[in-house]
Simulated scan of single mutants.
Amino acid sequence: MKELVKSIAKRTLPTPIISKLAQWRGVEYSLPVGKVEFGNLRRLKPISEAWGFDRGLPIDRYYIENFLANHCDDINGRVLEIGDSFYTNKFGGDRVTKKDVFHAVEGNPDATFVGDLTSADHIPSDAFDCLILTETLQLIYEVRLALKTIYRILKPGGVVLVTVPGITQLSDIEWKNTWYWNYTTLSAQRLFEEVFPPANIQLKTYGNVLTATSFLQGLATQELRKEELDYCDSNYEVTITVRAVKPQVTL
């Protein structure tokens, strides 16, 4: 195997033979050095610096909405969402009996709670059937304190639906000064296990090398095929999702 790799690296064999040998030995053949065509990607600035919002639906939003659609039955009863109630309305429908919005600063007319998730004593305990936290935890430095608040304010049996960024650009003018963390499956798992029972946590990642590259360039969902978007490769975590349930009997 080592000799085959060396031969491929040195290109001492004709390309068709290298390709056949690589397939036979279970090695995925890649283009020789100098043969990659960069096209529109040979650039030092991304195609879009706004995650693709200016071109269509950003790739991470495709993953976020797939995750929420897959767990739409959890969005019921009294629901708290961060920033606005867009996803509560889109995926909760008439299953939702009361909508609440949490916002970090004053001035949001839709907000029913304002403050800091790390010290939110004004939010009642055991109050919510569902919390929707999309792309929020990376903006909170004391994330462990925020998770303790989330656990406290969920009803027993309540569900929190969370998305956090993995591979992403950091181009948002509004949030770049408070963007503290990017996550991996392992870091998200460890953090949630500090608060929720491990058996009550489900994690799923979305992304592959093509969607990661496209997302970094700011391409939109509409510029890729569905089978390209839906292929998941755990080596390229664009979006990490967590579904965590508070036990019926609180710990």
Rank of each mutant, 00 (worst) to 15 (best):
S214R: 09
G218W: 04
L224W: 10
P156K: 06
A127H: 14
W179N: 13
I173H: 11
V105W: 09
E194S: 08
I201Q: 07
N108I: 12
R152C: 03
A111R: 07
V195P: 02
Y141Q: 12
G158T: 02
V143I: 12
L191G: 02
D129K: 04
I153Y: 01
W181I: 00
Y183G: 08
R190Y: 09
F102Q: 02
L186N: 14
K155C: 02
V101Y: 03
T112K: 10
T213K: 11
E106L: 14
V101F: 04
T221A: 13
V209P: 01
G166M: 06
A111Y: 05
L216P: 04
I201C: 09
D172N: 14
P197F: 00
L137I: 11
Y183N: 09
T134V: 14
V143C: 09
T184H: 01
L216H: 06
D172A: 08
P109C: 06
Y141C: 10
P198N: 07
L147I: 13
V159N: 13
P197R: 00
E135C: 08
S214P: 03
W175K: 11
H122K: 13
L133Y: 12
Q222K: 09
D126S: 15
L154A: 04
A104R: 14
T136S: 09
L216D: 01
L131R: 05
T149E: 07
L224G: 02
T211D: 03
L219K: 05
L133E: 10
G115H: 04
L131T: 00
N200V: 02
L139G: 00
E194L: 07
A127N: 12
T178M: 14
E194K: 12
L210M: 11
P109V: 09
T213Y: 07
L161A: 08
V159T: 15
Y151E: 00
Y206T: 06
D172Y: 00
S171Q: 13
S171E: 14
I132S: 13
L145G: 04
I167A: 10
K176S: 13
A104P: 01
Y183K: 00
P124Y: 01
V114D: 02
T163G: 05
N177Q: 11
K176Y: 13
E174P: 02
N177K: 11
Q217S: 12
I201E: 05
G218L: 03
F102T: 03
A212F: 08
I173A: 14
T213F: 11
T163P: 06
D126C: 14
G218R: 03
R144N: 15
L137V: 06
A212E: 08
E142T: 10
L203N: 06
P198K: 13
T211K: 00
V105G: 05
T213V: 11
L219P: 00
T118V: 11
P165S: 06
E223I: 05
Y151W: 06
T213R: 11
A111E: 01
S119V: 10
N208R: 02
W175R: 12
H122I: 10
T118W: 01
A104Q: 12
R225V: 06
D172W: 04
T163W: 02
S214C: 15
E193G: 08
Y141T: 10
K204S: 14
F215H: 15
L117G: 01
